[in-house]
Every structure is written in C-alpha cells, then in structure tokens.
Design a protein around this nucleic acid. Structure first.
Lengths: 160, 160
DNA sequence: TTATTATGGACATCAAAGGTCCATAATAAA
DNA sequence: TTTATTATGGACCTTTGATGTCCATAATAA
C-alpha cells in the first residue's frame, strides 16, 4: 500500500526532449550544441540523452553533426516545432485509448434500440461509445498541444 | 524494429471500468448485477474484473453486496459519474506530466532575463516552463472528461 | 445453515521505461 | 592525412507496472 499505481503519464524522455529543444532554441545564435552541454544542463546522462536526441534527428526535428565542434541544432524554426509533434516522436503515435472489451456491450445497447445495422466490432472502430468519448478527449488534448510550440514557451519566458 | 514503443495510453482496466459502469447504468431497473454477467458481457475474466470493481467500490462509485443474488449497482445516479472520476480512480491521481530535469534549464532562462526572484526548483513547482504548458494541457483534457458522464454516453446511444 | 458472491493477498508473467557501455562512423581541425 | 572529437546504434541490464490467475476468507440472503 506504499505506492499508488502510476500510469497515464508522459515519459521522462519527453521531458528531456522538450527541455533540450528549448535549450537549443535559446542558443540559436551559437551553433552545434554538444551532448555534453545538453546533458549537463538538464542533469541527465549523456548516453541516455543521446538516444532521445537521435530520435529527434531521425524525425527531422534537429540536425546533428559529428566531429570536433559538432553537436545539435534545430532543423526548423522554433515556431514550427509543436509540443504535439515532439510528444508523438518520443512516445509513438498510438491512440490515447484502445478498446479492449468485446463487441457485446455497446452493440447490445445499440441493437436493442434498433440501430442494429451498425458494424459488429468494438476494436478501434468508431462504434464503441466509450471510445467515441475518448477519441474526443484525445483530439481536444492534441489541439491544445498543437497550439504550443518551442517558440511560444520562449516568448512566455520573456514575459510577453 | 518490429514494435514501436507504446506509452501514453489509458489502461485496459479503465476500459473495463467504463464499460462495466455503462452496463450497470443500462440495467438499473434490475439490481445487483453479478461479476459473472459483467465479465461475460465484457469478455473479461471474472478474477481480473473483480479487482477493478473493488476499486470502484472503495471509491464510492458502485455498491457491492455479497451472497446469493448479490452483485454490483451504481452508488450514485449515472449523471453524477464523470469519465474523469472513473479514470482517476483506476489510473491513480498523478499528473500527466512530472518534470524530471534539473532546475537549471528554465531558471537560467528566467534568471538571465531578470526574473531571478523565483523559486529554484523545477520538480513539480509551477516555475518550469514546460510543466506549465503540460499542466494547461492536462486541465484542458480534464475539463472535457468532466463534461462526459456515464449517463451522457447512454443518452447518446439512444440518439438524443 | 448453506449456497453464493464479493474481497484481498500472494503469485506469476511480460513488456516497456530507463539506463549503461562500447564499437563504429563521421567530421572538422591540425 | 592523421587525429581528436562527437554522434550513432547495438547489446545488454534492471526495475517497475500492467495484466492476469488462484485461493482462502468474509459477508449475505434465501
């Protein structure tokens, strides 16, 4: 009874990624910020942060150059990098909610009231009533995360 | 490279809980729906669904009575049971986002611009710029989930 | 009293998060 | 062209939590 279960939460990797990108954006006059500086700034190991940065690179959010004076920089203007995009790159693109129950429950409901012509499958189709609400919630959340960018955070930091 | 990582997602338990509650609400003329009927309806094992139902009972969402003809029923009207409440009971009440990075990043930003009088801690305080956005996202999501209840889903099922 | 139903503890399994280490590739500077 | 430096990716490890089963016990109505 010591620990409550933990579940619906963004991963630490997402945290690292967002903070790293903000640091890059804030240092844009300089070029090629190395993993050493990034990991020291965030207080995270170089080896782990490297993995996160590699993902960001593979998805075209940052550019990376090896070698002396190498490092990372944003691949695009900070106002074109949304929170949603970063989160999806790191967390993957699965949906907030997947229906795992049988097709029985909600379809019995529908069938009994004479809407029996609908599909018979609850797995991911739009027929599941619970999923319908959750999909709405997801779109709601995503819309918010689309409206916030790396740049908008910087703007806010400088009280405007 | 076969499986993409899976992360930010509601658990199956939440799925089970929501579907079970809808079934209870839809059967409110009858009383005490047993775990047998519930598990058969959802296509889930009795033993596992029991755990989920116990959680719902401990948090006052359903009532349970053991013994012959025992079972579960809603402890409150279906319009007073929100999606958010169910989710929080099952998933726990941690936040969508916890800041894991050092206090350095965002405070260096603030400090450089002369806002140095703020706290020095990024762990969960409102000072972290990333966390501020994520908290906003969370509140956005929660507001939506508060507006949807077990009853509202039933209403929708009966096309009104 | 008895059959029935819910409860909770103890386990088991499995996948994913989080993290480390190292060999290799790439690059710029010397 | 070497060399020092930096990123990359594979292999591996540990911990945690989700999912699930089983069983003994408690509670309850018939």
């Amino acid at each position: 009874m010591e620990r409550e279960e933990v579940n619906i939460q963004f991963s630490k990797s997402t945290d690292y990624a967002l903070h790293a990108l903000i640091h890059l954006a804030h240092s844009e006059h300089r070029h090629n910020i190395g993993i050493k500086e990034l990991s020291a700034t965030l207080g995270v190991s170089e080896s782990y942060l490297s993995k996160v940065m590699s993902k960001l690179r593979r998805d075209g959010i940052v550019r990376a150059v090896p070698g002396v004076n190498g490092g990372y920089e944003l691949a695009r203007p900070a106002e074109q990098i949304t929170f949603l995009e970063v989160i999806q790159v790191i967390e993957g693109r699965q949906q907030l909610f997947e229906c795992s129950t049988l097709n029985s429950q909600q379809h019995r409901l529908l069938a009994e009231e004479g809407a029996a012509e609908r599909d018979r499958d609850c797995q991911g189709k739009s027929e599941c009533l619970v999923k319908k609400v959750m999909d709405g919630a997801e779109e709601h959340l995503y819309q918010y995360l689309r409206e916030h960018t790396i740049q908008s955070v910087l703007d806010e930091a400088f009280q405007r």
